[in-house]
Deep mutational scan, measured.
Amino acid sequence: MDSLVVLVLCLSCLLLLSLWRQSSGRGKLPPGPTPLPVIGNILQIGIKDISKSLTNLSKVYGPVFTLYFGLKPIVVLHGYEAVKEALIDLGEEFSGRGIFPLAERANRGFGIVFSNGKKWKEIRRFSLMTLRNFGMGKRSIEDRVQEEARCLVEELRKTKASPCDPTFILGCAPCNVICSIIFHKRFDYKDQQFLNLMEKLNENIKILSSPWIQICNNFSPIIDYFPGTHNKLLKNVAFMKSYILEKVKEHQESMDMNNPQDFIDCFLMKMEKEKHNQPSEFTIESLENTAVDLFGAGTETTSTTLRYALLLLLKHPEVTAKVQEEIERVIGRNRSPCMQDRSHMPYTDAVVHEVQRYIDLLPTSLPHAVTCDIKFRNYLIPKGTTILISLTSVLHDNKEFPNPEMFDPHHFLDEGGNFKKSKYFMPFSAGKRICVGEALAGMELFLFLTSILQNFNLKSLVDPKNLDTTPVVNGFASVPPFYQLCFIPV
Rank of each mutant, 00 (worst) to 15 (best):
D2W: 15
D2R: 02
L11K: 01
S12V: 12
C13S: 15
L14G: 06
L16F: 12
Q22G: 14
R26Y: 12
K28P: 12
P30V: 00
P33F: 00
T34W: 13
G40V: 00
K48G: 10
K48A: 13
N56M: 10
S58G: 07
P63R: 03
T66R: 03
L67I: 11
L67D: 01
Y68T: 04
I74E: 00
I74L: 09
V76I: 12
L77E: 01
H78C: 09
E81L: 07
L87W: 03
D89G: 09
E92N: 11
E92T: 10
E92S: 09
G98D: 10
A103H: 14
G109L: 10
V113F: 14
V113P: 09
K118H: 12
K118F: 11
K121S: 14
R125C: 12
R132D: 12
N133L: 11
K138H: 11
V145I: 10
R150P: 01
R150Q: 11
C151D: 03
V153C: 11
L156C: 04
T167E: 07
G171K: 12
C172S: 15
V177Y: 00
C179P: 00
S180A: 07
K185P: 01
D188A: 09
D191M: 01
D191E: 07
L197C: 03
L197E: 00
L197G: 00
E199P: 02
K200S: 10
N202S: 12
N204S: 11
I207G: 04
L208T: 10
L208V: 12
P211K: 08
Q214V: 08
F219V: 09
P221K: 07
P227L: 05
G228Y: 06
T229L: 11
I244V: 13
K247D: 02
V248G: 02
K249S: 09
K249W: 10
E250S: 11
Q252H: 10
Q252G: 07
M255E: 07
C266K: 12
K270Q: 11
M271H: 06
Q278S: 11
P279S: 14
E288G: 13
L294Y: 04
E300T: 09
T301M: 14
R307V: 06
L310E: 00
L313M: 12
V330S: 06
R335F: 03
P346R: 04
D349E: 12
A350S: 06
A350T: 00
V351S: 02
V352M: 07
V352Q: 02
H353V: 03
I359V: 06
L361W: 05
C372S: 15
I374Q: 06
I374C: 10
I374Y: 06
I374E: 02
L380M: 08
P382G: 02
T385A: 04
I387S: 01
L388V: 11
L391A: 14
T392D: 06
D397Q: 04
N403G: 07
P404D: 04
P404H: 06
E415L: 05
G416D: 12
K420P: 01
K421L: 15
S429I: 05
K432F: 12
K432E: 09
G442K: 12
F446T: 00
F448G: 00
S451L: 03
L453K: 02
N457D: 12
L458T: 02
K459V: 06
L461H: 08
D468Y: 04
A477D: 06
S478W: 05
Q484W: 04
